[in-house]
Design a protein around this nucleic acid. Structure first.
Lengths: 149, 149
DNA sequence: TGAGAGTACTTAGGTAACCTAATTAGGTAA
DNA sequence: TTACCTAATTAGGTTACCTAAGTACTCTCA
């Protein structure tokens, strides 16, 4: 395969809407079934991972980032707080705000959960070559941009 | 940008698990909110679209294709039947099977729904160039392959 | 030919993750 | 200090999945 080629010339772009939506739905379902080993769901894992990776956020910031309404995020946060993975802290400068921080337990869970997820993903990716992995990384960025557009 | 380059060298592949999962979740949510104009949900639309595109299927075939358990697919089909978009027919050769066929109303809905979806997607894709669209098409195929692996 | 095993669909009941509408509490500015 | 704005939360509902169990049909083979 040389520069400019792609895997299924023409076809790939023609049915982009259906092919992309279908592929994404299927991967989402697969991810959901794979994570079942964990104590937390996919949504909770993504939020907790963000708190660990990027540090404390307010509820509003989190719901914006994840493209979810505040009440939905609040529910996710409630379960993470109940499980002891996240802590609510008062914002010293604005009493309306609540600062959400991952606890050390939460940090630990994400490290382990992420390692396990990587195992599955690496197995799945083992059928792909390096070029394809790079392509997928680029595509993830594009998909994120579309989602947020 | 020349052959071999990609948009965020190194970074793209390094955090592939989180970046990909997050991007997919966000696009899924966006799709869900965009389709809200339709009478049917994203899941139903995907199934009905498949019936229109690929012709009649049994329930088992559909649930396999969509990576869902048979009872879940049955529920989706029930709602499509109630709305008059899909018809159940007996399999003449195997009394256990049920053949699912899109009605003409269903076919019509998909055509309209798809045109509308394309409008949104084209708008979203207008921020991308042709190379990026091709990349996204290729990635969709890879994602589908991973989901089904 | 008629049990026993297997397959395909369906029903029942439950859960996770979203939503909108309304409420509470804290901030801001005329 | 009243009136409005913003942030988080509560209440209640929907959708789309799941597992377990049941029904109806087909196939196999003694």
């Amino acid at each position: 395969m040389t520069c400019g080629d792609h895997f299924e010339t023409g076809l790939a772009v023609k049915d982009l809407d259906v092919v992309l939506a279908s592929a994404i739905s299927r991967l989402q379902r697969r991810l959901r079934s794979e994570k079942a080993v964990d104590q937390i769901g996919e949504t909770q894992r993504l939020v907790l991972a963000r708190l660990v990776r990027e540090g404390p956020h307010t509820l509003g910031e989190l719901s914006d980032r994840e493209r979810v309404k505040p009440p939905s995020m609040n529910q996710t946060i409630n379960s993470l707080v109940e499980l002891g993975y996240v802590e609510r802290q008062d914002d010293p400068t604005d009493g309306r705000k609540v600062i959400l921080v991952a606890t050390s337990t939460g940090r630990l869970l994400i490290e382990e959960s992420r390692r396990r997820f990587y195992e599955w993903l690496q197995a799945a990716l083992s059928t792909l070559n390096e070029d394809e992995r790079v392509l997928l990384g680029d595509a993830a960025i594009l998909i994120g941009r579309i989602a947020d557009s």
